[in-house]
Amino acid sequence: MNNPPHFRGFKPIGMPEENHPVVMNYEEYEAIRLSDSVLLGQVKAAQAMGVSRPTFARIYESARRKVAQAFAEGKSIVFEGGKVYFDSEWYSCKNCSCWFNHPAKEDKVTECALCGSSDVEQYKEDSQQIGITDKDC
């Protein structure tokens, strides 16, 4: 999964705080995002999430029901857990020519993790090419 949401959920306007929010997994959030926001087909969206198409359909169906339930009953939605890991972004430093990734996505990268130089650049392409090899090492 590429982009974790930067917020923890949704609240309906004009409803009292209630104790039973709809709990939505990150994979359900991602399924809706890929299908209805990025407008990918099911096959492509399933590939992007690394699951089979039927599995994707199941996640997506569950996600829509949760959104509908929250929408119809004025419930809030909270994002929580699920079987996901976040793909981190990679940066390169021009000073010491190293590569580093950035697990804390919320913070902006301003300096090299190794030498502290501010001459860093985000790596745009597929990060599989650098440093990451398919050897079992």
Partner: peptide, 16 residues
């Protein structure tokens, strides 16, 4: 990579 990502450990690749 996925293992370290989920543990939030930063990887620094130095080709030198």
């Amino acid at each position: 990579k996925p293992l370290l990502d989920s543990l939030k450990i930063q990887m620094i690749v130095l080709k030198n």
